[in-house]
């Protein structure tokens, strides 16, 4: 049975509160400057004059939604392909990990990843990124970010099962096209 762990993200529930990002920082002791999980507000639309009363400005399709992303534990992990030291590898359960003992700090993976997931820890001199809270998983617990989300907008599970439950969408604006690295994520779009 091919296994691939994946995140689920519900953009229609996410308020952009960044509790997930802080949970990740806390759980993993990440210093300022390193955020394995990131939350972005994405918006558009504009303001136009009211057609009948030009003295009023009215919003024209103004919208904002947030996306919360971490490493996508891609099915085609470009980071691992790029890493010259094979410090990045994909585990049997699909989780993409960095063996920090092997990392030489060339930062090539940082360029290769379409999601900005690998982030360099200057102080340790090694590349770091979301490890799917592997220690928690091993103890049968959920990832820290998932359990923190007040909106229950984050989930995780087997990619196939998530797809059955929530569909096949794996990219929304402003995320890059999923063709690049086949991210292991299922997304419910905002609207």
């Amino acid at each position: 049975m091919a296994k691939q762990l994946a995140f689920y993200f519900d953009a229609s529930a996410c308020t952009g509160c960044k509790a997930c990002a802080m949970a990740c920082k806390d759980k993993n002791n990440l210093p300022v400057g390193i955020n394995w999980r990131k939350v972005f507000d994405y918006g558009g639309g504009g303001w136009i004059q009211h057609p009948a009363h030009p003295e009023f400005m009215i919003p024209n399709n103004v919208f904002v939604y947030s996306t919360s992303t971490a490493c996508m534990h891609c099915e085609k992990p470009l980071c691992a392909e790029a890493c010259p030291a094979k410090a990045i590898f994909k585990r049997d359960d699909g989780v993409v990990l960095i063996d920090k003992d092997l990392c030489i700090g060339c930062r090539y993976c940082e360029w290769a990843c379409p999601y900005g997931a690998p982030q360099f820890n200057e102080e340790l001199g090694v590349m770091t990124k979301c490890d799917f809270c592997q220690d928690y998983l091993a103890q049968g617990q959920n990832p820290a970010c998932v359990d923190q989300c007040p909106q229950r907008a984050l989930g995780f599970g087997e990619l196939d099962e998530l797809r059955q439950m929530y569909g096949n969408i794996n990219a929304i604006e402003p995320l890059p096209s999923s063709d690049i690295s086949h991210p292991a994520i299922v997304i419910t779009p905002h609207k």
């Binding site: 010259p84 030291a85 092997l102 030489i104 060339c106």
Partner: peptide, 14 residues
Amino acid sequence: HLSRPYLSFLALRN
């Protein structure tokens, strides 16, 4: 360019 230049030989692994 490397943070751990003494390990640069590992760069031949992939």
